[in-house]
Design a protein around this nucleic acid. Structure first.
Length: 565
RNA sequence: GGGGACGUAGUUCAGUUGGUUAGAACGCUGCCCUGUCACGGCAGAGGCCGCGGGUUCGAGUCCCGUCGUCCCCGCCA
C-alpha cells in the first residue's frame, strides 16, 4: 500500500512506483496477463493511494535497477484497490526540482512526502530517541513543566496567553523552563531532563524559530565537568544515529582565549587563529597608517589561498567599512612596499607560510555593546570577516573543506555585560548564574571582570547550547540582583516565588540546554531550521498552511476583556 | 525598526534598448507504444506577468506605493 509516485505506461505494460515511508517499489501490470486489471491501472495518477496485491518477483538481470534499493524485485499485480484519488498536486514529491518554499509550506503535507523531508523527520525522531535513552540510562527523569506560566520581562519577548478567568491578566509561554527546572532540583529530583518546546517572540532567522525545541537538563551537586560529561555522552549517542563517531572529551577554552584566538565567543576550530602583530610595527608606522597605537593589529592568516584580487579585496572591504569599529589596513602585498621589515615580522609572528594570505585589521575602535576591553571589538569584527572569507572560498580551497565536527566548550563567560543604552549592567547569561568564587569580592567594585560558571558548547562556529552552575544561596542571589541594579522589592516582585524557594534548603545545582533543531539541522546538512521542523513558521512568524495567526471574533475578545485598538 | 534579493503557466525558469501574437522544460489532458524506472513519440489545454497607481502612442520590461517569500543587521538574558 502507498502512494503512486510515478506511472510509466508503455501501452501493454504499465509500471507503477508505489511509495511509502520506506521507499519505492515497482508494481507491474501486464495486459496480456490480466486485461481488466491493466485497464484499472491505466486510470492511476500521481499521488493516488493504492493497495496492490500480487507476487514479489525477482527481476530479470537486464531489468534490474541498481539505483533503487528495491531494484532487484518487483510486484506482479493480481489485484489492485484504489483507496483514494488525489487532485493533481501543485508539485510532485518525486520531482527533483524543488518548489518555491512558499508553495512547499502551504502544501506542507505534500512537501513532507518528499524523500529528503522524510529522512530529516526520521533523523529528528532517532536523535531525540537516542538522547532520551541515554539520559534515562544515566538516571535522568523526563519531567514536564508548564507551558502556561508567568511572564518574566527579562530577556526575549514573551508570547502571552490571555486569561479568561482574570480579565486583563496573562500567562506567558516559557522562553525556557529555567526556573521550573531549578525548582525541581530544590524538590529533590536530582537529575532532570526534558525535550521541550520553548517560545520567544523575536524576529526569525534561518536558524531561529519562534517556537523551538530544547534538550533541557539540570542536576544537583555537579561541577561543570560533570555537566560536560553528560552532554558529551548524549551528543555521541545522537551523532552515532547519523553515522558519526565523536571523540570526547571535547576541547575547552575560556571565553578570553576564544576572543583572543578566534575573535568570537563561538569559535570555529576549523579556522586558523588570529594573531596580534602590533609588535611588528613601530609607533610611527602605525600612525602613518592612521591606527591607534594602543590597539592591536590583528593578523588574519588564511592558509594556502594566495593573494586576494583587487575585486575580492573590494568585495570584502565593506564588512569593515560599515562597522566603523575596525579598519582593514590592506592585504600584505601592498603594505610590503612601504614596510618590508614590518611585514616580514608580522608574517613571522602569525606563522604564515609563503602561500598564506595575511589580512591586517586595526583600530580605532568604537565599543558599542559591552564593558569588555575595547580591543575585543576589533577581534569580533575580524572573526566575522574571516568566516565570510572562508565561505566565499570554500569551493576553491581545500583549507576550508576539512570536514568533521569540531566541538569546543567555551567556559568562564563574563558574568555581566554593560548595556550602553540603559547605562547599566546586564546578566550575560541570566541572573541565576553563579559567579566564580574567586570573583565574589569584585561584584561591586569591578563587575566587568567577574567571571561566571557559565559555559557554551560550540560546534563548527555554531552555538549549540548554553548552561551554567546556578546560584543556590540566597545571599549570593541578592548580591547579583543588587549588582544588576535591582532593588530588593523589585527582585521580590519579579522572582519572589523563586527567592522564597531558595530559602528552603536549595542544593548546589547546574545544567544546560541545547537546541535540538540546530543539532538535527547540522546532522541533516540542512541550511535552515525549516528543513527539520515539520510545521515551521515563515520569516514573519506565519504558518502558511493553517494560516496563523488570524484575527478572532469579537465574542472571543469580549470574553477575554480585550479590546483591539 | 533598518538593509538587500526575489515575485512571469500547476511547478522550475527564460523573456534583449519599452514595440505589437509572452516562451521553454517538467507537470496536466488525449492518442500511440510489451521492460520502463526522471520511459519514449505525437497532438493539445493552460497566463490578472503578485496587487494598486503613474510615465508613455505603447509597460512583463521604467517610476512610486503595497503585499508576500527568502537572507542579513537590530533584537534573541
Amino acid at each position: 500500500m502507498g502512494w503512486v509516485n510515478r506511472r510509466r505506461d508503455l501501452g501493454n505494460v504499465i509500471f507503477i512506483d508505489v511509495r511509502d515511508r520506506t521507499g519505492l517499489t515497482q508494481i507491474v501490470f501486464d495486459k496480456s496477463d490480466n486485461p481488466a486489471l491493466h485497464e484499472k491501472a491505466s486510470q492511476l495518477r500521481s499521488e493516488y493511494v493504492v493497495a496492490a496485491i500480487g507476487k514479489v518477483r525477482k527481476r530479470e538481470e537486464k531489468t534490474i535497477n541498481r539505483n533503487l534499493p528495491t531494484g532487484e524485485i518487483e510486484v506482479v499485480a493480481t489485484d489492485l484497490k484504489l483507496l483514494n484519488e488525489s487532485k493533481v498536486p501543485p508539485f510532485l514529491p518525486g520531482d527533483p526540482a524543488l518548489a518555491n518554499e512558499e508553495t512547499r509550506l502551504k502544501y506542507r503535507y505534500i512537501d513532507l512526502r518528499r524523500e529528503p523531508m522524510q529522512y530529516n523527520i526520521e533523523l529528528r525522531h532517532k536523535v531525540a530517541l537516542a538522547i532520551r535513552q541515554y539520559l534515562a540510562a544515566q538516571g535522568f527523569f523526563e519531567i514536564e513543566t508548564p507551558f502556561m506560566t508567568r511572564s518574566t520581562p527579562e530577556g526575549a519577548r514573551d508570547y502571552l496567553v490571555p486569561s479568561r478567568v482574570y480579565p486583563g491578566e496573562f500567562y506567558a509561554l516559557p522562553q525556557s523552563p529555567q526556573l521550573f527546572k531549578q525548582i525541581l532540583m530544590i524538590s529533590g529530583f536530582d537529575k532532570y531532563f526534558q525535550i521541550v518546546r520553548c517560545f520567544r517572540d523575536e524576529d526569525l532567522r534561518a536558524d531561529r524559530q519562534p517556537e523551538f525545541t530544547q534538550i533541557d537538563l539540570e542536576m544537583t551537586f555537579p561541577q561543570p565537568d560533570r555537566v560536560f560529561e553528560v552532554v558529551e555522552g548524549f551528543l555521541q549517542a545522537a551523532f552515532k544515529v547519523a553515522g558519526f563517531e565523536l571523540k570526547a572529551p571535547f576541547p575547552r577554552m575560556t571565553y578570553d582565549e576564544a576572543i583572543r584566538q578566534y575573535g568570537i565567543d563561538k569559535p570555529d576550530l576549523r579556522l586558523p587563529k588570529l594573531t596580534d602583530v602590533r609588535a611588528a610595527f613601530t609607533a610611527e608606522q602605525l600612525q602613518s597608517l592612521q591606527l591607534n597605537t594602543e590597539l592591536p593589529v590583528v593578523a588574519i592568516r588564511i592558509p594556502r589561498i594566495g593573494e586576494l584580487s583587487r575585486k575580492e579585496r573590494d568585495d570584502n572591504r565593506p564588512l569593515f567599512g560599515e562597522r566603523k569599529d575596525a579598519r582593514l589596513i590592506d592585504d600584505v602585498k601592498r603594505l610590503e612596499k612601504s614596510f618590508p621589515e614590518a611585514v616580514a615580522k608580522a608574517r613571522e609572528l602569525a606563522g604564515a607560510q609563503p602561500e598564506d594570505l595575511l589580512v591586517l585589521v586595526g583600530g580605532p575602535v568604537q565599543v558599542e555593546k559591552s564593558g569588555l576591553r575595547p580591543d575585543y571589538g576589533v577581534f569580533m569584527a575580524a572573526g566575522q570577516f574571516r568566516v565570510e572569507l572562508s565561505r566565499k572560498y570554500a569551493d576553491r580551497h581545500m583549507a576550508f573543506r576539512q570536514g568533521g565536527f569540531h566541538f569546543v566548550w567555551v567556559t568562564d563567560f563574563p558574568m555581566f555585560e554593560w548595556d550602553e543604552a540603559d547605562k547599566r549592567w546586564n546578566a550575560a547569561h541570566h541572573p541565576f548564574t553563579s559567579p566564580h568564587d574567586r570573583d565574589m569580592d569584585k561584584l561591586e567594585s569591578d563587575p566587568g571582570s567577574v567571571r561566571a560558571l557559565a559555559y557554551d558548547v560550540v560546534l563548527n562556529g555554531t552555538e549549540l547550547g548554553s548552561g551554567s552552575i546556578r546560584i543556590h544561596r540566597q545571599d549570593v542571589q541578592k548580591k547579583i540582583f543588587s549588582a544588576l541594579g535591582m532593588s530588593e522589592d523589585e527582585a521580590k516582585a519579579r522572582f519572589g516565588f523563586f527567592l522564597e524557594a531558595l530559602e528552603y534548603g536549595t542544593p548546589p545545582h547546574g545544567g544546560i540546554a541545547l537546541g535540538l533543531d540546530r543539532i538535527v539541522m547540522i546532522l541533516a546538512g540542512a541550511e535552515s531550521l525549516r528543513e527539520v521542523i515539520p510545521f515551521p513558521k515563515t520569516a514573519k512568524a506565519v504558518d502558511l498552511m493553517v494560516d496563523a495567526p488570524t484575527p478572532v471574533s469579537e465574542a472571543q475578545l469580549r470574553e477575554l476583556g480585550i479590546k483591539i485598538r
